[in-house]
Design a protein around this nucleic acid. Structure first.
Lengths: 218, 218
DNA sequence: AATAATTTTTAGATTAGTCTAAAAATTATT
DNA sequence: AATAATTTTTAGACTAATCTAAAAATTATT
C-alpha cells in the first residue's frame, strides 16, 4: 500500500523529473514539498525500498515504472476532478487546484472510471493539461509558448504553464481563456513584451505572461 | 484543526450517542472504530482537551456542541456524496458507503455547497437517511420499522436501519427500493416473519429483515 | 590540487496514533 | 458487603513522518 505522503512525494518527483530526464535532487524535492532535505532523504530511502524510485546516495532519484504508474494515476485523478469542479460545480479555473489536491488521493477504481464517463471522457483539464487515460497514456499536443510565436502568427490558447491563482485571474480579467483566438502583432525589443489582438481588441502582454501561456498555431 | 482520525472518532461517538442520550463508553467506541480501548482513552483525552467531548474518567464521553457540529457536518458530507455516487455515477446503494467514507473528509465549504446545489438540494441519501442542511438541521420523518406495522397496513419504504451490502442486495433481489409500496398481509406468530404484498406479488420476510426496513404508513 | 561552498546524509529527538500488559476503578454476583 | 468479572486507564514501547544540528560527500572556486 502506498500512503498519502508517499503519493505526494512520488507526484513531486514525477513533476520535477518531467523536464530534464536526469535524476531529481533531494533539495529540489524538499523545495517542492516544502519540507527539509533530511526528511526527503528518509522518505526517498523508504520509496527506494518499496521500489517506487531508484536511488543512490548523493545521486538523487528517478521513478521506477512502478513509481511512474502511481504518479500518472494521481495526475489522472487530479485532472479529472478539476474538470468535474469546473464543468459541474461551477468552480473557476483558479480555484480547482487546492481541492483537487485532496480529491486525487481517494482510492476507488470505480469512482474514477465512472467519473471519467460522467464527464464524457475529457482529454484535457481546465488549464489545458492532458488527462492520462486509464492505461496511463498521455497524448501530447503540439503547443508552443506564446513568447515563441512569430509576429503575424494566428494562435489559439491551449494551456498555461503556471497555474497560480494570480496568473489565471489576470487571464480572466483580460478575457483570455482556453480556446481564445489571438494574433501576435508586435514584439517590443526592449522588454520582449508583445502586442496581441483578441477579436478587435489590442492588448500588451509582458514577456513573463507570454512565457506562461501555451498556444497552437491556427 | 481537526485531524482525519479525530473526525472519525467524533463521528463514531455521534452515531453511538444518537440512540440513548447517555454517555458513550470507551469499549463501544473501540468496537465501532475497530481499535483497542487504550487507544480510545488516549484519543478521548485529546478530544476532551480540544473540547470536542466532555469526558470524566471511567464515565464515558458525550459530544460538546462543538463536537456535534463537526459530526453533523461529516454526516452531511457523507450523505451528499452518497447521493452523488448513486444519482450521477451510477453506483448502487450497496457500493457507496466505503467511497463516501473517504470523500466525507475533504474540507472545502465551496465544494459541498456547490455539490448540494448540483444535486438539487437533496433531503435524503440513497438509504433514506436525512441530509443535514448547511446549518446542521436534520428534519426527521415519521418512519416506523416494518416489523412494527400492523396487519393490513399499506406502507411505503423510506429507509433502512442496516446498510450492509448483504442486506441491500437482498432488497434489490426482491425488488424492494425506497419508494416501493407494500402491504402487510400476515404475521406468523412462531417466528414473527411477515407476509407482504408488493404490487401483486407476495413475499415472506423474516423478522430480522422487517426489523431493518423503515416504512411510513400511506 | 587544495580549499570553500553547497548539498546530502546521519544521528538523535519529537509528535500523532497505535499497541500490549499491568494496574485501577466500576459493576455484577454471590 | 465481600469477591469476581468486566471495563477503563496507565505505563511503556512502536511506527510513520517530521525536525535540528552535525558530519560526510559532492561540486565550485581559487
Amino acid at each position: 500500500m502506498v500512503t498519502l505522503t508517499e503519493e505526494n512525494y512520488i507526484k513531486a518527483i514525477y513533476h520535477l523529473g518531467k523536464y530534464g530526464a536526469n535524476n531529481v535532487s533531494t533539495n529540489a524535492i524538499a523545495k517542492e514539498m516544502e519540507t527539509k532535505a533530511s526528511s526527503v532523504t528518509d522518505m526517498v530511502k523508504k520509496l527506494s525500498e518499496k521500489s517506487y524510485v531508484d536511488y543512490k546516495k548523493y545521486q538523487g532519484v528517478t521513478l521506477t515504472n512502478k513509481g511512474k504508474e502511481v504518479a500518472v494515476n494521481i495526475v489522472r485523478k487530479h485532472r479529472l476532478w478539476e474538470v468535474f469542479l469546473v464543468e459541474k460545480l461551477n468552480f473557476s479555473w483558479d480555484e480547482v487546484h487546492e481541492v483537487a489536491e485532496h480529491l486525487e488521493h481517494i482510492k476507488s477504481k470505480k469512482l474514477i472510471s465512472q467519473l471519467d464517463a460522467f464527464l464524457g471522457f475529457p482529454t484535457h483539464d481546465p488549464h489545458g493539461d492532458p488527462i492520462p487515460d486509464k492505461t496511463g497514456k498521455i497524448k501530447k499536443i503540439d503547443k508552443i509558448l506564446l513568447s515563441e510565436a512569430e509576429i503575424g502568427d494566428n494562435c489559439i490558447c491551449v494551456g498555461v504553464q503556471d497555474s497560480s491563482s494570480d496568473f489565471l485571474k489576470y487571464l480572466d480579467k483580460n478575457d483570455i481563456a482556453l480556446g481564445t483566438a489571438l494574433k501576435v502583432c508586435h514584439r517590443e525589443p526592449f522588454d520582449n513584451s508583445i502586442t496581441i489582438k483578441i477579436k478587435t481588441k489590442e492588448l500588451i502582454i509582458s514577456n513573463m505572461i507570454a512565457n506562461n501561456l501555451f498556444v497552437k498555431l491556427s
